[in-house]
């Protein structure tokens, strides 16, 4: 239970940062906090207390003592994707700073509905 609460808390903290911070680097940090939260949530779904790796390595090891490997495989993929998104975001931040000479999102708003 504590894993779920921590993960959801992380997601909420990240979203708070994205929605309220004015500095675009902080917004990108918020994005990656949300990513970590989601990854943690995914991992905790497959987690079993005192579980081991899902390999039949020891005599008498039954499947109910093993953690679920699928969420872990998913998280590996999700981490890589999160890294890619963060990299693109930071490169856009560099571009924005080059053009506007500021990181304040309130000053970067030429485009409107």
């Amino acid at each position: 239970m504590v894993y779920y609460i921590t993960a959801i808390l992380l997601i909420l903290i990240g979203m708070y940062a994205i929605l309220t911070k004015k500095n675009i680097i902080k917004i990108v940090i918020g994005l990656s906090i949300v990513d970590s939260g989601v990854n943690l949530l995914l991992i905790s779904i497959g987690y079993i207390k005192n579980g081991t790796a899902p390999i039949f390595s020891v005599e008498g090891l039954t499947p109910d003592k093993m953690v679920d490997p699928i969420p872990q495989a998913l998280v590996l993929t999700a981490i890589v994707i999160g890294l890619g998104v963060t990299a693109v975001a930071l490169s856009l931040v560099i571009r924005l700073y080059d053009h506007h000479k500021t990181l304040n999102i309130n000053k970067i708003r030429k485009l409107k509905w």
Binding site: L31, V34, D35, L41, L42, V85
Partner: peptide
Amino acid sequence: KDGAEAAFKYLLIGSFSSTFYLIAVM
């Protein structure tokens, strides 16, 4: 100038979308 701004906006909204989708998958 505007391209970077539009792309950043798109990226923010797009990451939200993929986060929601991933939570749904989970």
